[in-house]
Structures are given as structure tokens and as C-alpha cells.
Design a protein around this nucleic acid. Structure first.
Lengths: 242, 242
DNA sequence: TATTCAGCCCAACAAATGTTGGTGACGAAA
DNA sequence: TTTCGTCACCAACATTTGTTGGGCTGAATA
């Protein structure tokens, strides 16, 4: 089996369904000139109309909005293989900002290349559409979590999701995910103090461990049970189990 | 100006940008055999793999999920001109359910027709893509509201959004929107009792009025101020002001 | 070494929200 | 008419979550 292991984008789109070797070759061409970014830097800010699209190679990126009262809400996490802003070409002005959470390695892709992919590579077009729809499904699930689960289950559910998504692109090294507690709070929609309370509960129950501001999951099955995690919304049924 | 006033779908897609007259004609053909549904009936249930896509002509439809503990979360509202489930053709199994909130008039569109639209009508394809991305933006905004605003502002914000979306398709007759307080609660992610508390506050402040379980907005400007509503995420800049 | 600073942690209290149990109005069905 | 069910509404209390303020550590720096 010639599953694409090196190219994260190909690895991610692979989850949408089979790609032909010409598709894989094309995707290799797309990834050129990666660049690094430190943690907590903005890629794009609210109101801009950028000409490039960004692909995450490594690290963690987020979408966020800042309200008038200064509060921040993180509304999406982008992991390796994710394209940050496929929509800018259609929607124009950004209605939110995008920034790094950790040190990142990224690639810029021009609108032209994206349009070439969409127009001339039907399997890739379908896969990109799939990825947009999965992003939407993730948003729905976050909304359910925030509205209808208490913070402890919600946090556990988030960890399950990130675990599953990293596994799906073979980037679940060491079972670690880095986040400050403030970032965690902005994702869950709770205060920093509460995020911390909840995190320490999860730790006391042995559901997660923390070293160096990094969360690790010793037993994913137990965590999933606790969180009542059903991964179907990630639509990873094509994911190779390697 | 030959702005399409009768055909809701055309009216909605018009907001994405200009359509040619052949596009409009095609969209008229798509709308055939509308059927009625009562309030609170399911269109599609979690786990199904439907062969049709549904377009709302009138009434209000919602996406929802039910958790193990029996709690329900409504994660999207579909208004006239909205297509309920464009994604089923790509994602396959539904990861949520879709049901009516009010009496509705709907049209079934087969997957084949959708694929024809996507393949052979590039302006329509772009408009449908636009509409998917706006749906995503709305989800982000709901997430922000739920996580970072108190229930009163959140509710006011919801009313502003529905007002804007109905206005954008010329369906803001009488400035009314119908919802039971339980449904309202399931949208906002609060308890029924709290939804009711908050609604009566808004009423006391004169921001909304209620008759017959229908919410009306006497002064949209004031409500928008209260809710700190910024409509940019709806991406209606092309909307004709008629 | 001393100093800053960011991030984690904790406790006490305040505010927002959830839960329970009850009332009354109303329309549909018997 | 009576019964039944749904929905709006309300009050009292329980729980969750937010806020404030302070202490601790470790890394970076003067």
C-alpha cells in the first residue's frame, strides 16, 4: 500500500477517500518553502483580505475572535495537514483572526494554486470539500459540548478530539498536546480559574497527566468513556489503520 | 434590475454575487413539487444516508443533536432559501438530525441535480460554496456567543441574526419569529427556565415583544446595540437594498 | 545574586445558571 | 363539559462558574 506518509496534506486528504498517484504528486509540488513561526503570532487578522492560504505542517494554529469587552474566544484548532483559510478566496474579508498557539511550520499556497487544484483535480476538489464539511461538523460538536456538557466532560471531549485528529494524520507522537490554561479556557468558554479547576480534577482522576504544560492521555479508552466521545462527526471511516 | 424576488433560493444565492439569467432559469427548474410539513417533524435522523437534499421555501428548520443524557442542542437554524444538507453527498452518514420547528414548505432536490449544478453552472457552484462558508461563519459566531456572552446578550444577538437573515431573503414580514422557549433554550445552551427569565428581561427593557409565542423586534437598531451585533460574519455585502 | 515575568495553583466569595415543583391559560380530543 | 397535554410563568433553592487576590515556581535577564 502506498499510503502517503511524508506529506501531511496528502495524509489528511487520504482520509476523505482514495487519491491517485498524480494527485499525490501534485500535492507534493504544492508544499514548497515552508517557514517557521513562533508561538502566539498572528497569521491573519480580522478584516484583512489575504492573497494566500496557509497549510499547517507542524504545530498548532487557532481561529479566534476578540469581543468588545476584551474577552477572547477560540473557535477552531488547526493541526498538521489542515488548511487554515480556504474560504478567503470566496468570502473576502476575514471575519476572525488566525494565530499560532505553538511554534509552527507552515506553507503558503497562492489562490491560483488552490484554484488549479479545485478546477483540474477532481479527487482533490472533493477531498478539500470533504475537509471543509468536516470542519463544519467539528464546529457543531464544539457547540454541543459548550452548550450541553459540563466543563469537565467538555474538556475531556476536546482532548479526545485532538487525539483522534492527530492520530488520523500520524502526528500523535508521545500522546502530547501543548496548551496554556488560558488558551484552554478560551476554547472551552470558561474562565482561566475554572479551566484550571477542571484540569486538576481530570488529573486527580488519572484521566490525563500534565508535564511541562503539556497534556498527555495515559488511557484513551477510559477518557473516551468519561467524555462520552463518539468520533463519527470526524468522518474518518477511510482512515488507514497503520 | 431583474433581482429575483419570487425564487427564494435565487434570492439567497444572489447575496453571494451576481448570477446570470441562465442561472436563474436553472434555479427555477430546480424548485418543483414543494411539500408541506408540520412543526416538530424530522426530515432526516442521525445515522441515515439520505439521497435527497432539502431546500426550505418557508418556515424554520433546525439541525440538532441529542446527547446520552437526553439533553438536546440545536446547532443551526435554516430559513427560507437555505439548503439543509448539501453535505450528505460528500460526508455520507448524517452525524446529526434535521427537523422542523414550524410548519414548513420544502422542496426535495436529488443528488444528481446538485451535482449537475456544481459541475455545469460555475456561478451557482461558487454561490453554493459561499453559502456553505457562511454557514460555517454562523457556527463560529454562535460558539463565540455561547462561550463568551451572557445569556441576555446572546439571546438578543440571535434575534438580530435571524432578523438580518430573513431580511436578506425578503422574508422579514411583520418582524416576527416563532419559537417556544424550550427551543430557544436548546439554541442558547441554557435551561428552559433561564431562557424564560432572560426573555422576560428583554421584554421588560422593551427590546423585544412577544405575542402568541412569537418574538417581534420593535427597534432593531436598539437591539443591535444591546447585543453588540456586528453582521459582517453573514457576508451580505452584495445584498440588494430594496 | 537579585529581579522580573509568565504561568500554575489555591481559597473565599459573588454572580450566573440549573433544578425542582408548582400555577394557570389554552386548545384538542373525548 | 371534562380531561388531557403543552406551554408560559414563577419562586426557592442547589450547583456551577466567575472574580478577586494572593502565593509559588522556574526561566530569562540584569
Amino acid at each position: 500500500m502506498h499510503s502517503p506518509m511524508k506529506n501531511v496534506l496528502a495524509r489528511k486528504l487520504w482520509n476523505a477517500g482514495r487519491l491517485a498517484s498524480e494527485d499525490l504528486k501534485k500535492l507534493d509540488d504544492v508544499i514548497a518553502d515552508p517557514f517557521q513561526l513562533d508561538a502566539r503570532e498572528d497569521l491573519i487578522q480580522h478584516g484583512e483580505d489575504p492573497q494566500n492560504v496557509h497549510l499547517v505542517l507542524s504545530g498548532m494554529v487557532c481561529r479566534y475572535k476578540v469581543l468588545q469587552n476584551g474577552k477572547r474566544a477560540i473557535v477552531a484548532l488547526m493541526l498538521p495537514g489542515d488548511i487554515c483559510d480556504l474560504h478567503v478566496a470566496i468570502l473576502g474579508r476575514m471575519d476572525h483572526s488566525i494565530g499560532t498557539l505553538t511554534e509552527c511550520s507552515l506553507v503558503k499556497i497562492s489562490r491560483g494554486v488552490i484554484e488549479d487544484l479545485l478546477d483540474n483535480y477532481s479527487r482533490i476538489r472533493r477531498a478539500l470539500f470533504w475537509s471543509t464539511l468536516v470542519d463544519e461538523a467539528i464546529l457543531r460538536e464544539w457547540l454541543v459540548n459548550m452548550g450541553r456538557r459540563r466543563a469537565d466532560k467538555q474538556m475531556a471531549h476536546l482532548f479526545c478530539e485532538v487525539h483522534a485528529r492527530l492520530t488520523a494524520v500520524n502526528r500523535m507522537h508521545n500522546a502530547l498536546m501543548p496548551l496554556t490554561q488560558e488558551e484552554l479556557a478560551d476554547i472551552l468558554g470558561v474562565s482561566t480559574v475554572h479551566a484550571q479547576r477542571v484540569l486538576s480534577e481530570l488529573r486527580n482522576q488519572g484521566l490525563v497527566t500534565v508535564q511541562d504544560s503539556r497534556v498527555a492521555v495515559p488511557d484513551i479508552v477510559r477518557l473516551r468513556q468519561f467524555a462520552e466521545f463518539e468520533g463519527d462527526y470526524l468522518h474518518l471511516e477511510h482512515a488507514a489503520a497503520e
